[in-house]
Amino acid sequence: MPNPPPIDDALLAHLGELARISLPKQRQAELRGKLQQLVAAFSSLGEADFDMCDGDSARQIITPDELREDRAETPPDVSEVLANSPQTAADCFVVARVVEP
């Protein structure tokens, strides 16, 4: 079994940042433990031998004749577009100030 990558504090913090999920101190140990357990178990895929039987993939494909024709439709009213937004002004969604990361 290949060594599973350790889920350390830095990696956990990185994942939280990527996913925009805050990781308060009191939850860190628990989450790290759970992730470590799962990652260790799932590392088994790393050693499996998946020699592909043939090139015949089961994945669907799409061809140009199945694509949508380029025809514009009347879009929903702006009130419908904004209907589920938590904050709006001047027919726009409103968010907190964007600060460059």
């Binding site: 025809r71 514009a72 439709e73 879009p75 929903p76 001047a90 027919d91 726009c92 969604f93």
Partner: peptide, 15 residues
């Protein structure tokens, strides 16, 4: 299918 337009009041070209 929302129309593409350079101009337009905010969020009026949104599907």
């Amino acid at each position: 299918p929302a129309p593409v337009a350079a101009l337009g009041a905010p969020n009026t070209r949104v599907h």
